[in-house]
């Protein structure tokens, strides 16, 4: 991995306002973004992900903490002196300039000679497949085309890090899927560190090398998509990424108890009350199993069925099964098995 393009955020915090109206947009965030990786900041709106992105770009200065690019401290540098470029959510293309002039803007500001600039602009337009639009005014472009121009413009000065602020949110579903693949391709081909902000968990899972899940101005968990999905660190992550069942349990002797039923655990957990998290698709139907539940409802989803059931202690549980099984009737009792590798023990509420 490339040392010079690694981003290191140490204890960064950002407060807005003062006195009684102070808002902690970011609270002591520490994270490392490896050079040349596709890193995603994922979280609901207001979680601080955009604030963190603005700190990285230099549009805001942190109230506390430091930001390093490679081994250079960039905390106090203005945006125009950081080798970091941004793709804005609204694209922010310059309406008075043509497509080619937009793409060449950063190079022009850097004082790069005309001939070299033009060559680079052509190369960038080819990279995003917009060669035929070079002389068009940007107002004549569709949303997807503007998106590509915004990408080319941000990539043209060869930044060490590219920041993307929910760039796909304005596109329709089909175009969004195409652009996801396109972005991955661009990241691989350029080798630039991508920091991608989104609230869409599916987008994050499919595109990222690593994801930081954020909530309430803090990083809740950092990991690969697989780690975050399979081993959520807390209830927020388990609930935000995919769906999860949360069952109140008591942990003792390396096992979790739901009523009289005992589920042995793969990893050690602190004794006492806890929450057991399990994905609906991980729960197995097993006739005659010790853990039983009463079916309350079934929902057909096309490629799967969702069965809603009630455990003996009254807790609601959802499980997902292939659409090929015989659907149980409402009121029928079913046996459930919670596979040990799919069970996560989280703190009690």
């Amino acid at each position: 991995m490339d040392e010079a393009t690694r981003v290191y955020v140490k204890d960064a915090s950002k407060r807005f306002g003062h006195g009684a109206t102070v808002v902690h947009a970011l609270a002591d965030v520490t994270l490392t973004i490896e050079g040349g990786s596709f890193f995603t900041l994922l979280g609901p709106s207001g979680c601080g992900k955009t604030t963190l992105l603005r700190l990285l770009a230099g549009f805001e200065t942190p109230t506390g903490g430091r930001i390093l690019l490679g081994d250079q401290d960039v905390t106090a540098l203005p945006p125009n002196r950081r080798p970091i470029n941004t793709v804005f959510q609204s694209y922010a293309l310059f309406p008075h300039l043509s497509v080619a002039q937009n793409v060449g803007f950063g190079l022009k500001m850097q004082g790069i000679a005309r001939a070299k600039r033009d060559a680079r602009v052509d190369q960038m337009l080819a990279l995003v497949r917009m060669q035929d639009f070079a002389e068009r005014p940007v107002a004549q472009l569709s949303g997807g085309q503007q998106q590509r121009v915004a990408l080319a413009r941000a990539l043209a000065p060869e930044p060490r890090v590219l920041l993307l602020d929910e760039p796909l949110s304005a596109l329709d579903l089909k175009l969004r899927k195409e652009m996801q693949i396109e972005l991955k391709r661009l990241q691989r081909e350029t080798g630039i560190t991508f920091v991608f902000v989104t609230h869409d968990q599916e987008e994050a899972l499919t595109m990222s090398d690593r994801i930081a899940v954020m909530s309430a101005g803090r990083v809740q968990q950092i990991g690969t998509p697989r780690e975050i999905y399979a081993h959520p660190a807390n209830r927020f992550v388990a609930g935000f990424i995919g769906e999860s069942n949360f069952l109140p349990v008591t942990v003792a002797d390396g096992a979790a108890r739901i009523g009289d039923h005992r589920i042995s655990l793969a990893a050690p957990a602190d004794p006492g009350p806890a929450t057991l998290a399990i994905r609906p698709e991980d729960i197995m139907l097993e006739p005659g199993a010790a853990l039983s539940a009463e079916v309350t409802d079934t929902v057909y989803l096309g490629n799967a069925v969702q069965i809603m059931a009630r455990l003996e202690d009254g807790t609601q549980i959802a499980l997902r099964q292939p659409a090929t099984i015989d659907l149980p009737e409402s009121g029928q009792r079913i046996g459930l098995r919670l596979p040990v590798e799919a069970v996560q023990i989280l703190e009690a509420e």
Binding site: G58, F59, R81, N85, T86, F88, A92, F94, M109, A154
Partner: peptide, 10 residues
């Protein structure tokens, strides 16, 4: 944002 974009582009 246009002015922010200009600053971002050096």
């Amino acid at each position: 944002t246009l002015e922010a974009a200009a600053a971002d582009l050096y």
